[in-house]
Amino acid sequence: MTQPSTSTLSSAAAGPAELMIEARGVEKWYPNGFHALRGCDLEVRKGEVVVIMGPSGSGKSTFIRTFNALEDFQQGSITVDGITLSNDLRRIDAIRREVGMVFQQFNLFPHLTVLDNLTLAPVLVRRRPKAEVERQARALLERVGISEQADKYPGQLSGGQQQRVAIARSLCMEPRIMLFDEPTSALDPEMVREVLQVMRGLAADGMTMVVVTHEVGFAREVAHRVVLMAGGEVVEEASPDTFFTSPSQPRTRQFLNQIL
């Protein structure tokens, strides 16, 4: 009998959106003994954009890299798209197929053309016909605004163009979640805008995104929630308005004073 009221409370649409990432009490020690993550929790629902901020060395990158098992962890649990992360390699591959990742250093494959960068994984991993993937890849390159560069090599593109190719490469796998690990930190200032523009478009289309970034403007405008990490802990989690204007934690105020 209380069901209708809960659904109207949690969301304007039909019921709470599906849980895409659920991290509970994640603890990680590096082999050298460094305690990188100290009991981190995070929930990301379908269609949500969560921005993670924090000083360097706070564990932000390590945290989102645990979501697609590029980093392991020792305690706690992480469930991604309904699959619980474990040491089972087949499960890890299954998760990675559904989770796209964009790196600070782009990590495009320099020996392949832009088009081949996009088509390699879908053909190899999803076993889709090459011609069909190629059509989709060209459409994606069009969408990120570099369709005329399809036959060039990554080394021939600017940093901003490379990062847009990297986003398109992830999208070509048709992921359900996209992780961004400081996607604009290695870019010249004039190229940051074009990459953020592509990410705004993705968010507007309803992609579930977790973004580690220092771009305050992007966080204010696009994020549903902003998370502050410091010293390997999740310090604060709030809506962008609350986060930037009236944060509850002194650590957050201190961090904001440094970057604003």
């Binding site: 697609n68 590029l70 591959d93 990675r96 197929r97 989770v99 796209g100 990742m101 790196f103 250093q105 990590n107 495009l108 494959f109 320099p110 020996h111 390699l120 994984a121 190899l124 991993v125 999803r126 990297a166 490469r169 992830s170 796998m173």
Partner: peptide, 27 residues
């Protein structure tokens, strides 16, 4: 070959063997 190459290939869902044959070894 930078570490990021293998990570990028793995994050696209390729197995270690696929990543080595198509991404790491050619470079």
């Amino acid at each position: 070959v930078p570490r990021g190459q293998l990570e990028a290939a793995r994050s696209l869902g390729m197995s270690t063997i696929q990543a080595f044959i198509t991404v790491v070894m050619p470079q």
